[in-house]
């Protein structure tokens, strides 16, 4: 059986479904037998989900306005990009 440390080092590939079938089966067997790793796996999956649901980042109005002004100046100065 895998150790908890081995399980943890494969957790990212496991959650991203990037492991081989053989390794995946070993990892699944580990979490059915190790409640701690099951919790870590489940809450890591939820961590990723809550961040995915985070509102898309907005940019402050003044920052946007200054960016657009800088780009317009650039276009006026040099016309077409190289």
């Amino acid at each position: 059986m895998l150790t908890c440390k081995q399980f943890l080092s494969e957790l990212t590939d496991y959650l991203d479904e990037k492991t081989s079938t053989e390794l995946r089966e070993k990892l699944q067997r580990h979490i059915t037998e190790c409640p701690n790793c099951w919790v870590v796996c489940d809450t890591t999956k939820k961590t990723i989900q809550v961040y995915k649901g985070m509102q898309s980042c907005s940019i402050p109005e003044d920052v946007h306005a200054r960016l657009m002004a800088a780009v317009e100046r650039k276009i006026a100065d040099c016309g077409k990009p190289k």
Partner: peptide, 8 residues
């Protein structure tokens, strides 16, 4: 992996 675990 480290980022995910620390956030978790």
């Amino acid at each position: 992996l480290r980022a995910r675990l620390q956030l978790r």
